[in-house]
């Protein structure tokens, strides 16, 4: 029976890119690493309690007492588990990856919202990015960028970007037709339409997308410990590979706490905006 050598083609493609795109990949790697490492240095330079206070304050102002207490207790627990440094590593990787995913994802979402052909082409690619098992990204990422944090960040960006693209697209497309008509009838240009009407009305949906992207980043950052991205994922990975159930559990708990805090914080950004509108 004929077997389509799809894997071989992909192999070939990756090798070709490796041979011809070395300078490009090195450039990306160096600049990416610079950002991640400096962010890490800054966060680690701050005393741990100051960071905890910052999170408590964020929680208080964005949401209220509950979230402030949750953030405070959660982060103190992580510190007491002696996982602070790993958490900071994970945090800076999540930050960098999310930031880049948003920088690419939001404009992409706007573009496909305004262009039906682009939407038809991009949608299946997004499906592909989201449903491909996350581990698969790790291999080419390692081949292009070597082991370490940068391939982790790249794999994370690819894996975490689809939600913000999709929800930006959805948010803009959901703006009521008559509001669009009103804006046109008063003589809006398409830029004015985007800035004054579409983006503000789509904002709650876009914020949901950003929230989802952050959550996916976190889960992928943990997985990319397998290619040496360190952080909390490494603690869990060690726990699994060395059969240290207790240690693995501690790492897992830290990830969960961290995820909940990030989730509630980003969700409340959206809510506080809507509340202002109704007040």
């Amino acid at each position: 029976m004929f077997r389509l050598p799809l894997g071989d083609y992909f192999d070939y493609l990756v090798h070709w890119l490796q041979d011809h795109g070395e300078t490009v990949f090195d450039g990306i790697k160096d600049s990416g690493m610079w950002v991640i490492e400096h962010l890490e240095d800054i966060l680690l330079f701050l005393p741990w309690w100051l960071l905890v206070i910052i999170f408590i304050a964020l929680g208080y102002f964005l949401s209220g007492k509950k979230l402030a207490i949750l953030s405070g207790l959660g982060l103190c627990l992580i510190y007491s588990l002696d996982l602070w440094e790993e958490t900071i590593e994970t945090l800076s990787l999540v930050f960098t990856a999310t930031f880049l995913a948003l920088i690419i994802g939001i404009p992409l979402g706007i573009w496909i919202a305004k262009n039906n052909t682009a939407e038809k082409i991009i949608q299946p690619i997004l499906d592909f990015m989201q449903t491909m098992p996350a581990f698969v990204y790790l291999i080419p990422a390692v081949m292009f960028f070597g082991l370490g944090k940068m391939p982790g960040a790249i794999a994370t960006i690819i894996f975490a970007m689809p939600p913000v693209v999709r929800l930006t697209n959805l948010g803009i497309r959901q703006v009521p037709e008559d509001v669009i008509e009103a804006a046109v009838s008063f003589g809006s240009t398409s830029d004015q339409m985007l800035i004054k009407v579409q983006l503000p009305l789509a904002m709650p949906t876009i914020l949901t997308g950003i929230n989802q992207t952050i959550m996916l980043s976190l889960s992928m950052v943990v997985i990319s410990a397998m290619i040496g991205a360190r952080g909390l994922g490494e603690v869990v990975l060690n726990g699994v590979t060395q059969m240290q159930i207790g240690k693995g559990f501690e790492g897992g708990i830290a990830v969960v706490i961290f995820a909940i805090i990030l989730d509630r914080l980003t969700q409340s950004i959206g809510k506080s905006k809507t509340r202002k509108r109704k007040a």
Binding site: P176, D178, S185, F186, G187, P200, L201, M203
Partner: peptide, 20 residues
């Protein structure tokens, strides 16, 4: 654009206001 801005204006059935 000029005509829409200066000469003709419109009121809509479902108001079409910006909620934010």
């Amino acid at each position: 654009l000029e005509i829409r801005r200066k000469k003709i204006t419109m009121v809509f059935q479902h108001f079409a206001l910006l909620p934010h």
